[in-house]
Design a protein around this nucleic acid. Structure first.
Lengths: 123, 123
DNA sequence: ATATATACATAATTTTCTTATGTATAAATC
DNA sequence: GATTTATACATAAGAAAATTATGTATATAT
């Protein structure tokens, strides 16, 4: 006999809300950690958000490829034993872009906070 | 001779970030204002966000119709002179749903704030 | 020996938006 | 008076960004 208990309140709130913020999250992590590989990013985000945000591979890898194609990220393939890892890091342009995206994210956060709960506002 | 000046920094930051939050914004406004019509919602959001968020009609009306179909909103059609307006208000179920969605939004905001700038965190 | 974790990738589908288009009345401007 | 802008609804086509499903392969833990 098994009893499963899920705390749906604390885990995986509304994943939908994170739509549109994945790229900014990736850029912020790379700004802090110099170079990271995809799987590492998913684990780091899971840890930092206490499991609230789980980046799926189907979202992550296309996002990394796109950022690379846009010249925001550089990639370096390293052999680790018998397998490979693709390490990503910010280009010079990517660093500028990150600063800009983080500013936009802060504006967004402030605006949403103001909208949903004016009393929490910093203004 | 015309000179156009746009301040692209303060107006319309990254509209993409708002993806997924439209329904919650609508619900919050209806919780505060009892009943509102579509156009009124777009104007209210524009004012409250100082022009940072402009809800398009192509996004708004389908969202209202969906919330109504889900039993979250009730609609009442009123004649104003020679035209009509569709006033929306929260159902009983919609009020509960709003409380839940606002809690999810607050969790999202806190998580994103923590991610992009840990020093701003309230924790 | 088997299951789980690590590590990449892509295709099909879904969701949610933008952009474009359409209709119609009211008010403001030229 | 004519024209533009604002008010007020609606939907269709297309784009963007995700989820879900599937695939491959090695390393580690049970």
């Amino acid at each position: 006999m098994y009893i499963f208990v899920f705390n749906t309140q604390s885990v995986m709130a509304n994943q939908k809300l994170y739509k549109g913020s994945l790229q900014t999250i990736i850029l912020k992590l790379l700004a802090e950690n110099n170079k990271m590989y995809g799987y590492e990013i998913t684990q780091k985000v899971k840890t930092l958000t206490h499991g609230k945000l789980n980046i799926t591979e189907g979202a992550l890898y296309p996002a990394l490829h796109k950022l690379e194609a846009e010249g925001i990220l550089d990639v370096e393939v390293l052999n680790i034993g018998n397998r490979f890892r693709k390490y990503y890091k910010l280009t010079e342009h990517g660093t500028k872009e990150t600063i800009s995206r983080l500013a936009e994210m802060q504006t967004f956060i402030n605006t949403m906070q103001q909208l949903v709960n004016p009393s929490f506002s910093l203004e």
